[in-house]
Simulated scan of single mutants.
Amino acid sequence: MPANPKYLSSNWQRFAKITAGFLGGYFVTISFHLAISFIFNHVNVIITSTYTGFILWAVLMILAFLAKNGWKVWGIYLLLTILFSMIIYVGKIYNPIIS
């Protein structure tokens, strides 16, 4: 019995979901951990990020595949990465010793 066409996505959607899951999830994970390293003790954040980074990356990858539109996921992940990057920038201005 063939698959129902309404459940199949196009090749571009599949590409967007895969790249958003792997690359976008990685960008959000790294920028998030770097942003919180300016709020909390950066040594503790770096040590715990080995575990929490993998968990967050895996969750973001699963969420990318659960979404209907991969390009919207890319947009959300890019906005989150820009937001965390702005927090990093402000953190470097107000606390330049950590950098």
Rank of each mutant, 00 (worst) to 15 (best):
L34V: 14
I39S: 02
L8W: 01
A16I: 09
P2H: 08
N11F: 11
S10Q: 12
Y89G: 12
F27C: 10
Y7Q: 13
N95M: 05
A16M: 12
L56A: 08
Y51T: 10
V73E: 00
M1D: 01
T50M: 14
I30F: 09
L66E: 05
L80R: 05
T29Q: 02
I30E: 01
I76S: 09
S31M: 12
L78P: 02
F27R: 05
V45G: 05
V90G: 11
W71T: 12
G75E: 04
I46E: 11
S99H: 14
F38T: 01
P5G: 01
V73S: 02
T50L: 15
I93L: 15
G70F: 00
L34Y: 13
I76T: 12
A3F: 13
F54V: 03
K17H: 11
G91L: 01
K68I: 00
I88T: 15
V28P: 02
M61W: 06
M61C: 09
L78W: 04
T19A: 11
S85M: 13
I62C: 01
F84S: 06
S49W: 00
Y7H: 15
M61F: 08
Y51C: 10
I18A: 10
A35V: 10
N69F: 05
I76E: 02
N41S: 14
V28M: 01
T50P: 07
V59Y: 03
A35T: 06
I82W: 09
I47M: 07
A58G: 12
T48G: 09
K6Q: 10
S9F: 02
W74K: 02
H42C: 07
A58I: 02
L78S: 07
F22N: 07
M1R: 04
I76N: 04
I39M: 05
I36N: 02
I82R: 12
I46T: 05
W71D: 05
G24C: 08
K68Y: 05
W57F: 10
A3Y: 11
V45E: 04
F32W: 08
M86T: 15
V45Y: 01
M1H: 04
P96I: 04
N11V: 11
F65K: 04
